[in-house]
């Protein structure tokens, strides 16, 4: 199997990739593209997190992939079902930008940094090490995660392509 299948992860969505699949999510602004990877089992997972905490949810049926505190446990569970082990897991993330800068505004405008903070807290709870991250700034990113190498490819208009 040389052909790598591309799995698209939408906004407020998550998915896992096996057997060399590439996970991709586009147009990350304040959202965070979080990836988990078990390098031994070669199981990769990606979540496109939109909001920091499900506590603020006003929807009847929570979309777990949307909030950092529910997306990470769900992603872990799905990866473990596919043979990944929590102990071997490592994380990477990108996004969490502040697209527009306003002075003296409330918390809702700091949503990007808050998403990042919330992901970090959750990862710490699960004792998952963060291998690398490319977060913050004021620009959008598109990311691709390779489930063989565990490399995260980040594309942005201002900074071109980089791998972390």
């Amino acid at each position: 199997m040389t052909e790598q299948t591309l799995i698209k992860v939408g906004m407020a969505d998550l998915n896992i990739g096996l057997a060399g699949a590439i996970l991709k999510t586009t147009g990350l602004g304040s959202c965070v593209g979080l990836t988990l990877f078990d390098p031994v089992a070669k199981v990769a997972g990606m979540a496109h997190v939109m909001l920091p905490s499900s506590e603020i949810a006003r929807e009847a049926q929570i979309n777990a992939a949307k909030y950092a505190d529910t997306a990470i446990p769900l992603l872990l569970q799905r990866m473990e079902n596919s043979g990944a082990k929590l102990l071997r897991m490592e994380a990477k993330m990108a996004g969490g930008a502040q697209m527009f800068a306003f002075s003296g505004q409330g918390d809702s405008l700091r949503i990007g940094p808050r998403n990042v903070e919330s992901c970090l807290v959750l990862l710490q709870q699960y004792r998952i090490p963060v291998r690398s991250q490319d977060t913050g700034g004021n620009f959008g990113r598109t990311v691709e995660f390779d489930s063989i190498s565990g490399m995260l490819l980040i594309r942005s208009m201002q900074h071109g392509v980089k791998e972390i």
Partner: peptide
């Protein structure tokens, strides 16, 4: 910048519901 990154900013209020 990318349209997705820009517009998602306006959707945060909806994300909660």
């Amino acid at each position: 910048d990318m349209a997705g990154a820009i517009l998602s900013y306006g959707l945060v209020q909806y994300g909660e519901m």
